[in-house]
């Protein structure tokens, strides 16, 4: 083993790493936002009394959760192309990640809905709250509050998984690393550094979600329950 590591040559490229990291965060942000919307709708759909809607949502969740992200990305990439639609790699990556995380979010939020005791809803009805008030204050918010930790770790996993989009040449962090290592022949240093950047990104996301949790769930803050 000839250990002559030269991290300086890699550090020089920090602007490229920074750009890649920002793109990774952008991908994660878009997919998190849209994935949450899909998740809420999907969870409502899965609990729908309409059998066909519930079935469609169930098939979506199981199909996504039981196939690899890599294959999903290729399917979206080539599927759109075969329909004659041309999008940038970034758009395709964001779409594939959204579809992917939407399924996991659906399942997590559904678990939150299921955990709302029936009595709470009956109590709200007894207090003459309107249907929409009940849905928002008694079901939705407490449900999301309950599953907030699970949701946020899913979103951190999503950020890490976005590395796979380098395979359709989205220019995010891992793609930047691949380029730099082929340019400098310093594969070991490059990937060690990139691993560290990912670790920092996941810590940043965790801290961000923790702060966000304090803002959107003030009740939890008052109770002093850890998020």
């Amino acid at each position: 083993m000839n250990l002559n590591l030269d991290f300086a040559a890699i550090f020089e490229r920090w602007p490229a790493f920074l750009e890649g990291a920002l793109l990774t965060l952008q991908l994660a942000f878009i997919a998190t936002l849209l994935g949450t919307v899909i998740g809420v709708l999907g969870a409502i759909g899965r609990r729908s009394s309409h059998p066909i809607i519930a079935r469609i949502c169930g098939v979506y969740v199981e199909a996504i959760r039981n196939t690899p992200l890599l294959v999903q990305i290729f399917l979206v990439y080539f599927g759109l192309a075969s329909l004659g639609l041309k999008f940038s790699a970034f758009t395709v990556a964001a779409a594939a990640l959204t579809i992917n995380v939407g399924a996991y979010t659906t399942e997590i939020i559904r678990a939150g809905f299921d955990a709302i005791p029936r009595g709470q809803i009956e109590a709200a009805e007894g207090l003459a709250l309107s249907r929409s008030q009940i849905y928002w204050h008694v079901v939705m918010l407490p449900a999301i509050e309950k599953v907030y930790p699970a949701l946020t770790s899913q979103f951190v996993l999503l950020m890490l998984a976005s590395s796979v989009t380098s395979q359709i040449s989205a220019e995010e962090l891992t793609a930047v690393a691949n380029y730099i290592q082929s340019d400098t022949y310093r594969a070991f240093e490059t990937y060690i550094l990139v691993a560290l950047v990912y670790i920092v990104l996941s810590l940043v996301m965790r801290a961000g979600f923790w702060l966000l949790g304090l803002v959107i769930f003030p009740r939890r803050r008052r109770l002093g329950t850890p998020l």
């Binding site: 310093r186 594969a187 670790i199």
Partner: peptide, 25 residues
């Protein structure tokens, strides 16, 4: 656990496949 859970598997793959040969393994 924190280190590994904060790193994408893809990067670990690249690190072992491209990184170790760079060290002579």
């Amino acid at each position: 656990v924190q280190l590994i859970q904060g790193t994408p598997l893809l990067v670990i793959m690249f690190l072992t496949y491209f990184g170790l040969p760079a060290l002579g393994v």
